[in-house]
Design a protein around this nucleic acid. Structure first.
Lengths: 367, 367
DNA sequence: CTGTTAGCGCCTTCAT
DNA sequence: ATGAAGGCGCTAACAG
């Protein structure tokens, strides 16, 4: 529709050089501060650049240096605080490393694989969430071309993976509920939806130490799904004295609807979540949950990816960050006012699940 | 540290062409589906590309076509749901338009202006939030080079701005409180921190219709700030029967701390927010607030930016999207169970503040 | 310290 | 339908 897309696309390194009366080499040197330029020349160049309002063309530089100086990040979605924090950590670290971040949200996309391939076209490497079903394909497809790193997923040969501890944390959380005298626990969330949820479910089962455990309630993670499940509970279709939810959004929506329906939490039923989102400390009773070092995960991802881009070989296995149990009222513990996020009530001696460990890759990838 | 950054950076359009036994022109045509290629040739190329695991170099293409095919987005931060939703809407629309999105978070950066300039290097245009203090400088600096669009800020000549309605909504919200019989309202939040907060404060003042209004409580938007303000209230330093907060996070933290301190909401004091975050409907009483079409704002931004990149002239003035009052219990209204977000209780006839309007740019930019 | 020059990988007329 | 060749803007030797 427009013949010339931009009214003044000009102002290249040439025009600046010309105006400054120097060669393009000098302009280049000044622009990227590679030194070796006299002060007088620098001034002339800077002045010319400013006058022409010179904005270097990143693509040209990338082509010349053979680097995009950009990290790709593929997230399933961005609802809820989990992915946001991950993104914050990632972007922060990437920026520190001088890398731009190109973001791709898989959510509404028709052909995610195609979009990821497109993304791979403009970044030096990329990080994907393990819950994305295209992860394996793409990772394999890019194998040997661009470094790929997986978060909260399973490692593959040549493909690093990092994640937060799940199994042990879920196990302790479950054991805690058992310790409160609860006997009919139900895991709410679909283990098949993501590797980390699967791990949590395994921890849940493990805590029962052989006792039979009911099948998980396989529903999605959205608020609406929690609410309708709660309705089934209110209708008497479900029998349980504690719900171990796959994440806080689910736990929150279930607890809320249950309370509206006259069920007392935690007296009649306990509800616990996972993630420690903001709302978890504002509801009454406070939601007992597990805090993940999400931002740290993001930072680590950017770091590891950068290492790989710089030529480091893929670390084998899965790197696991510790998680932390956060006890509030919804599990049956005495409710304590909890307004300061920094001092969330945790068990005494900084109870922390798992240590930063490195496990050999195998069928069971988490500690 | 590594001499060759990538083990197999090869596989260019040339290697593919060679393997397929055709010219690079054919490869190029096949890769971007520009047609005019025999089926046989196409097959050979595709096979070769797959075998070599060919990933085209985006930078080279960008340089050739003189387009980055990428939109830049500069956000102040990513805490809370507001910016996330904005980002979701933006990314979604950008992807539909075939554009990548390069994200920049201003938050922890030392030299935001520098980073934005770097960003401008690799995108065809960019969108910035009006609350960023570098907005003006950068926008001016890029003027005539790359299209720049501002969200929730003031328009400038040649620089479009879009935003959600603030003044009118704040005015109605305030009037509603007045209607509940509240007489000593306090605006909590710093109008100087962002243009849209300033607009809300003006609406707040306007609703008083000449009656004297106290100065706003100028504190930041974080939870911690709200809590410490609440402590001052509990200490008796503040006198008011209603708090009109600049956003929900502030409102939530204040309400929570107040309740912990024995203050009844809304009996003793009313608290209202702005944004309608998830937690707003989980707390008791539900938080009365104003919902913004945030995701739509993001989509619109991507759309408008794309228009500009395609050569369309800047629309003058500010485009405003309507907001919606969400009445729950914290203002004094009869609390209604509100679990389904989609059916949040709003006043009868779809009370909506403002219509999609276009105002001429002037000192006062919002409706 | 400064200028010259040869690519970087891809797209795109223009011939064939 | 296919190939040949020039050029996009910048960096990085290599001369001077």
């Amino acid at each position: 529709m427009a013949k010339d897309r931009q009214r003044d696309p000009g102002a290249t390194i040439y025009s600046v050089a010309e105006l400054a009366g120097v060669s393009i080499a000098s302009v280049s040197r000044v622009m990227q501060g590679s030194g070796g330029v006299s002060d007088k020349t620098r001034q002339k160049v800077l002045a010319a650049a400013k006058e022409l309002n010179y904005v270097p063309l990143g693509a040209a530089r990338s082509l010349a240096v053979r680097h995009h100086e950009a990290h790709g990040l593929v997230l399933p979605e961005l609802a809820g605080p989990y992915y946001s924090e991950l993104l914050i950590g990632f972007e922060t670290r990437a920026a520190e490393l001088g890398q731009s971040v190109v973001l791709l949200l898989a959510d509404g996309k028709r052909d995610v694989a195609r979009d990821v391939r497109r993304l791979a076209t403009r970044v030096d490497g990329l990080v994907m969430l393990g819950s994305l079903c295209v992860t394996d394909m793409v990772a394999q497809g890019l194998h040997g071309k661009k470094p790929v790193l997986v978060i909260a997923g399973h490692p593959q040969p040549g493909i690093e993976a990092i994640g937060a501890e799940n199994h042990q944390g879920a196990r302790e959380l479950t054991a805690h509920l058992l310790g409160h005298g609860r006997r009919r626990l139900l895991f709410v969330g679909d283990p098949a939806s993501a590797p980390d949820v699967a791990d949590r479910y395994e921890g849940f089962v493990a805590a029962h130490e052989g006792e039979p455990t009911p099948d998980p309630v396989r529903i999605p993670f959205r608020e609406a799904d929690g609410a309708s499940f709660a309705d089934r509970v209110l209708g008497g279709d479900v029998e349980a004295d504690a719900f171990v939810c796959a994440n806080d959004e689910l736990a929150l929506s279930i607890m809320s609807r249950l309370q509206d329906g006259g069920v007392r939490v935690p007296e009649d039923v306990a509800v616990v979540g996972w993630d420690d989102v903001m709302a978890a400390r504002y509801v009454r009773p406070g939601l007992t949950t597990v805090r993940q070092p999400v931002k740290e995960l993001g930072r680590l991802a950017a770091d590891r990816l950068h290492e790989r881009i710089a030529g480091a070989p893929a670390r084998e296995g899965l790197e696991i960050l510790p998680t932390q149990l956060v006890l509030r009222g919804s599990c049956g513990c005495a409710a304590a006012p909890d307004a300061k996020p920094a001092t969330a009530s945790a068990k005494p001696s900084g109870r922390t699940t798992g240590r930063p460990v490195r496990k050999a890759s195998s069928k069971r990838t988490t500690a």
